[in-house]
């Protein structure tokens, strides 16, 4: 049995996951907690956010995010992909900045217009 705090939403439900009962989750407040509890012990993933260089925008950095969650173990590789990126304004929210992060199919996308 593993105790977890659900990170899906700010409520922070206290979950208990039973590895011996096929990762049965208790203590959840909604169905997303069940998915999270199971995934966290089998294949933990995160959505990552960061910034990239941009020329001609209102700021020097453009915020970006992964368009879906990626395996926790790939976070540093995913971050390294942004080091050499340099964009020029205008960029629209949702625009792909780096496609297919390390073969995961997830992409870095812009998280605002600039």
């Amino acid at each position: 049995m593993t105790n977890l705090i659900c990170i899906v939403c700010p409520k922070g439900c206290h979950l208990a996951v039973d590895e011996e009962k096929d990762f049965e989750v208790t203590g959840f407040g909604c169905a997303r907690g069940v998915d999270y509890g199971k995934k966290e012990l089998t294949n933990p993933t995160r959505v990552i956010t960061s910034t990239v260089k941009i020329q001609g925008g209102i700021h020097k950095r453009l915020p970006v995010k992964t368009d879906r969650d990626i395996p926790k173990g790939m976070i540093s590789q995913a971050m390294a992909l942004l080091d050499t990126v340099e964009l020029t304004s205008p960029v629209k929210v949702g625009e792909v900045v780096v496609p297919d992060i390390c073969g995961t199919g997830a992409a870095w996308v812009a998280s605002r217009d600039m």
Binding site: P10, T49, T51, P63, S111
Partner: peptide, 16 residues
């Protein structure tokens, strides 16, 4: 720039 905004209002997880 982190995510976790909007779960109540937009019913989806957005960045700031």
């Amino acid at each position: 720039i982190h995510n976790g905004f909007g779960l109540h209002y937009f019913k989806e997880e957005l960045t700031g």
